[in-house]
Design a protein around this nucleic acid. Structure first.
Lengths: 253, 253
DNA sequence: TCATGTCGTTCTGCAATGCGGAACGCCGTT
DNA sequence: AACGGCGTTCCGCATTGCAGAACGACATGA
């Protein structure tokens, strides 16, 4: 039992975990559900929710007596969205890249470790000019081990790897940690990552790291249906994303 | 000294206030500034920030050692944005209203009481079809006492009034509480509110309450330069917003 | 170079704070 | 009417987080 200098405010951590849980659920939840799911006492959950509600971080539906994310989060999220310089600087570069390739362009940043496996956040995107593509919206969270952007962030240490059994999404998903590690080494070697249907069948992505100084802070990617991402087109995309990521790096200076 | 059944988690409240403060500042801040501004001990602020950072609600710039809102708020804000039913239901109605009037259309909800005076949050908006208009973006917070939407929310009890001296923004701003109260009574009587350059010179708005059941949950407004909002056009707008707000009410059923 | 001020960070004992468990009141169901 | 499940409230105890001071790093200016 090492004291281990914890220095984290327990009640605050619990409250933030409650918020994150509600964010994952995407619908209103009751006190008991939260208490069970988060392994907390009902009275604790209730008190935390009352405080969160008083500050507008949570709203209570008086009819169902359930709680959900509140408007203050909306406000603060918008402030983040509008002030993160990376997003604004990257935008024009992303637009050019999207026009050049005609495919969806994504800008991803590491998600703070939330319990389970390492994840990435879609900070911004530009839609494909083709009709037939359904891509996630900004704010979406995806697993890192089976996405091009995620692998880039893992490879360059912007995101901590994990020992957990990696969940399998398709036949191509890397579920073995050793395999993932050698993949990450290769990504570092060639400066880009490819995801060939590792998250979703029919979806191929290629991503490059965005540096700020000597640290990788984001990943830029081009995604499209595998049918359009043949070897030659993928080569084009590789050149283009790496170049674009470099441009963003210069803008961040 | 009544015990007064407080039942709010102090440390959590402090942390949430820190977040809100950073949201207002819109730029990274240091520990000392926060401690001074929030009237807290430095060590407390530091510990809270460490915890917030561990959960991704705050990021620290290692170079400047300053803190700012983190990506988790972005994620949760997006979840709020995408799941609040009001927004999705109101959208088509707002689009029609905007096309009809050619002016900016805003959907506003009450902001949770944050220390000072009652405020409103811009939940969604549609731009004017005219060129020359600069309107706030979704997520923006405005004072309630000098906006049409804010006065509507105050009038119908969706937002608590306040005793503070009301800050003056223009010559037309209502700064007297008695005057405001009679204005609110009149708003309740005629079912709409008008803001004639009370927040900004040259800007006129007209707003109507959006009911859910027997409670007002939002305000819908049409805003334009005073030059385009003459008596006749304002009459048109009044009919239109009231009708549109009624439609949204039906959709919320 | 050294003194000085300012910043973020760490430490530690004390006591206020938040926790746990149980009890309560409210519904809808059985 | 009895029951089970829910959100909510209560209260004493010990854990948790607090205050204050000290520390170390950095920038500034003499």
């Amino acid at each position: 039992m090492q004291p281990k200098r914890d220095s984290s405010v327990k009640s605050l951590t619990k409250a933030l975990d409650l918020l994150s849980y509600m964010g994952r659920q995407r619908h209103a939840v009751g006190v008991t559900e939260l208490a069970n799911e988060m392994d907390l006492n009902k009275s604790v959950v209730h008190r935390l929710l009352q405080t969160l509600e008083a500050c507008g971080f949570v709203v209570k539906n008086p009819a169902t007596r359930q709680y959900f994310l509140g408007p203050r989060l909306f406000v603060l999220g918008k402030v983040y969205e509008n002030t993160v310089t990376l997003r604004g600087l990257a935008r024009p570069v992303m637009e050019r890249l999207a026009r050049q390739m005609g495919e969806a362009v994504h800008l991803m940043v590491p998600a703070p470790p939330e319990g389970g496996l390492p994840s990435i956040i879609l900070l911004d995107k530009i839609e494909s000019t083709y009709q037939l593509t359904m891509t996630p919206n900004p704010g979406a969270v995806s697993p890192a081990h089976c996405t091009a952007g995620g692998k880039v962030l893992l490879a360059y240490g912007a995101l901590d790897a994990v020992a957990e059994p990696l969940p399998k999404h398709t036949a191509h998903t890397i579920t073995d940690l050793a395999t993932l590690r050698s993949e990450l080494a290769q990504i570092r070697a060639c400066g880009h990552a490819i995801d060939r249907e590792e998250l979703e069948v029919g979806l191929t992505c290629i991503a490059a790291p965005v540096f700020e100084g000597d640290k990788v802070v984001a990943a830029l990617s081009v995604s499209g249906p595998s049918s359009r991402m043949g070897a030659d087109r993928l080569d084009l995309a590789r050149e283009a994303v790496i170049a674009a990521a470099g441009e963003i790096r210069n803008l961040l200076r």
